[in-house]
Write a protein that binds this DNA or RNA. Structure first.
Length: 225
DNA sequence: TACATGATGCCCT
DNA sequence: GGGCATCATGTAG
């Protein structure tokens, strides 16, 4: 089940020093990498949302810098992690130059490596971790795909799978080769991008700022075309 | 499959 | 004290 990946390069700060809309779209197909003592967890980014500064009422940055959101106002390429609904964390990356707020929310990943550790972090028991017999059992294969999808399809779910918390990761430089949480490019090309309304917001809800890899099974929520 | 609902804790007014 | 960039679970169709 685990896939072998070719070499990849860590995204630079320059990549994030742009409008969040362009960063959100460009991040599709890139990799989120977490180094743990046991393993390296890798997921492909399949769904993102852009959050702007002034004028975006849904953005945490809208009413100015606070103790919670200060990372969004800092230099590009840093992790903004916040706690939501009493239970979940959400991961963003800061965009635009130091002093100008903006960011991209990561909404879903396609898990590639470290499946066992990610599933365990989510309290999910995979049917056949290595799956050599999967092809012979249709129902087991379907169940496995459904379980894999539930690992990191959603902003709260993917943070739980990657062990991302505010205490551990907020303010971390995601562009540093020394970081245990990085964003990387392995050369993967996205065929088609779907642009839709953002999920779960009530203000500025009519903006098309959600980006997803069209047809990808690991995108959160109802299926897109 | 689709939708409604409750849980839960922190931030900011 | 209100509201929240969510999720799991339940019920109905």
């Amino acid at each position: 089940m685990e896939r072998r990946l070719g070499s990849f390069s860590v995204l630079t700060s320059k990549f994030f020093n742009r409008d969040p809309r362009r960063v959100a779209r460009s991040l599709l197909g890139k990799l989120l990498v977490r180094k743990t003592p046991q393993d390296t967890l890798i997921g492909r980014i399949v769904e993102t949302e852009a959050y702007l500064g002034e004028g975006d009422a849904a953005a945490h940055a809208v009413s100015g810098k606070t103790a919670r959101n200060f990372v969004l106002f800092g230099p590009p390429g840093y992790a903004y992690v916040y706690f939501i609904y009493g239970s979940y964390f959400c991961l963003n990356v800061s965009c635009l130059p130091d002093g100008i707020p903006g960011g991209v929310l990561f909404r879903a990943l396609e898990p590639l490596t470290g499946l066992e550790e990610m599933a365990a972090a989510r309290g999910i028991k995979l049917v056949e971790p290595d799956g050599p017999r999967l092809q012979r059992h249709e129902s087991a294969a379907r169940k496995q795909i459904s379980l894999l999808r539930s690992i990191s399809s959603g902003p709260g779910r993917m943070c739980e799978a990657f062990g991302i918390t505010r205490e551990r990761d907020n303010g971390k430089d995601l562009t540093s080769s020394r970081s245990d949480l990085q964003l990387a490019d392995d050369g993967y090309r996205v065929a088609r991008v779907a642009v839709t309304l953002r999920v779960g917001i009530s203000k500025s809800a009519d903006e098309l700022l959600r980006y997803a890899i069209a047809g990808n099974a690991f995108v959160s929520g109802p299926k897109l075309r």
